[in-house]
Amino acid sequence: MPVLRPDWNLEITAENVLFAQAADSAAISRRSPRLVDVAHRAAQHALTLIDPVVIYREVPVKSIEKERLYLEDNNSLSGPLILEHLQNATVVLVLICTIGGRLEDQATSFSREDISFSFALDSAGSFAVELLANHVCRYFETFYNQRGMKTSIPLNPGMIGWSLLPGQIEVFRVLEGINSEVSLSESGMMTPRKSVSIVLGAGEEILRVGSRCDYCSYHGRCFYKDKSEAHSCKPITQLERIEL
């Protein structure tokens, strides 16, 4: 079943929303209680607008030639980042996580009358899709570990060494035929925008090196640097039943 619609008992707090807005929630709470209230309202509203979907496919690696990783389904992934992390992979898992388009539509509709709420709602969506992606990656890491395989760090098109547009095209090609949820624009933008595309490599000889931050163009200049990626959230129950 390559498309999941998880039964996700998500919780989003005002602190989560402010975090997604790259704002220090403690400082904001002291200075601008109104913004905490806006964030809280946005978090509550967001929960009614999130439709999580995970589209995934596992494909065995066929060969590596030059800077290209060829897959058994005749697709390929290319670039220095791919080679660095996936050269020892026996399988790759290609996936897209999305929370659907309802939230961003609402955020846009609020943007004229209440830009502050609109931005908070949009940020709640960013938080939710990032959280979904983190949960899904952790699930699959455990899934492969239990089968004696190690996993690479999650790789996203647009990271240093994997150009955005070619990378997105490669991901979408692998998921062709099973993905009707998320579309790709000519510029590499996904619709719904609250979507994340990921490739995870797995194999007995995989060397897990670095962190995602090391390959991000914001490296060293980001609000999120050195801040915990972990956010408390109830697990996605349906993911416990994933089968590849």
Binding site: Q21, A22, A27, L35, A39, S116, F119
Partner: peptide, 11 residues
């Protein structure tokens, strides 16, 4: 200061 504060100040 953070972006949400900038936005409400602008408003």
């Amino acid at each position: 200061a953070f972006l949400p504060e900038l936005i409400v100040a602008g408003d």
